[in-house]
């Protein structure tokens, strides 16, 4: 350690926000959004899981970024290992092909989105995703509605997912109730110049985001790491979300 200098930490969030700004200056089809998750830095805190729920006002059973936990080794050498799993935003997304009504598609910037107003809720995409990154909205709320009125954060506060302001009506079939749902890379935040919520909140600094097509972007730097790993590479889905193991 260089004692004439202090380490105050590198603000990767600000670096990535600058990357994001540059990307937004380009036409949408020139952006290649990608996310990297450094498994060495992930501490299994679930901050990302919860921030995603809060950001998108997700109901029970709908989860975009669960974090799996695994015990490796045996006492006294046992350790925990985690794997946060947002949508892989596959370049060859099996979920898109199967949709009978083209309610889900891959945007030119690579984000796979769902039009909740077109989705018929057949759940074919859900069974087709090899990462189980899609969940179905059963129309429930966190509050036990048989005993209490719905709370403001779940029925009054709209979500802004996909840039659409939408209020939830529990027990109804008003979208997004009755739809397949998935991580959008927080596209509404991106367009507003903000990083995805899970990236911002990651207390381990383990989540990276940016435009792969920009060689100056941090994400592009990471994509060249020998530690890069893709989930289920053999399926040919070409995930945009990758891991550093």
């Amino acid at each position: 350690m260089n004692r004439t200098d202090a380490n105050i930490g590198e603000n990767i969030l600000e670096r990535m926000r600058a990357d994001l700004k540059r990307a937004l200056d380009k036409p949408v089809e020139d952006r290649r959004w990608a996310m990297a998750i450094d498994l060495e830095k992930c501490v299994g805190c679930n901050a990302c899981t919860v921030s995603c729920i809060a950001e998108n006002a997700l109901p029970p059973g709908v989860v975009y970024r669960p974090v799996t936990e695994e015990v490796v080794g045996e006492y006294p050498h046992a350790r925990l290992r985690w794997l946060p799993r947002p949508c892989m935003q596959c370049e060859e997304p099996p979920c898109v092909n199967v949709c009978p009504v083209s309610a889900t598609w891959r945007r030119p910037d690579g984000i796979v989105v769902i039009d909740y107003d077109a989705c018929i809720g057949c759940r074919y995409c859900i069974v087709s995703c090899p990462y189980q990154a899609r969940t179905f909205d059963f129309g429930e709320e966190h509050t036990d509605l048989s005993a209490h009125p719905g709370q403001p954060y779940e029925i009054h506060r709209p979500a802004f997912e996909n840039g659409v302001e939408r209020q939830r009506i529990p027990h109804s079939d008003k979208s997004p109730v009755g739809n397949a749902r998935k991580c959008t890379y927080c596209v509404n935040r991106l367009e507003a110049g903000m990083l995805p919520s899970c990236t911002n909140t990651c207390i381990g600094g383990a989540t990276y985001f940016g435009d792969l097509s920009d060689s100056h972007a941090l994400i592009a730097e990471l994509a060249g790491s020998p530690r890069v790993m893709h989930l289920k590479e053999e399926l040919g889905t070409s995930p945009r979300t990758f891991y550093l193991s």
Binding site: C99, A103, C122
Partner: peptide, 26 residues
């Protein structure tokens, strides 16, 4: 009855995706 949005079933006629086996099937 299995559809999340029963009353959007006709969408398969209006905006079919023929890469989907389900669309073909319908």
């Amino acid at each position: 009855f299995d559809l999340g949005h029963m009353f959007r079933a006709w969408e398969v006629m209006l905006r079919p995706n023929f890469r989907s086996m389900m669309a073909w099937m319908v």
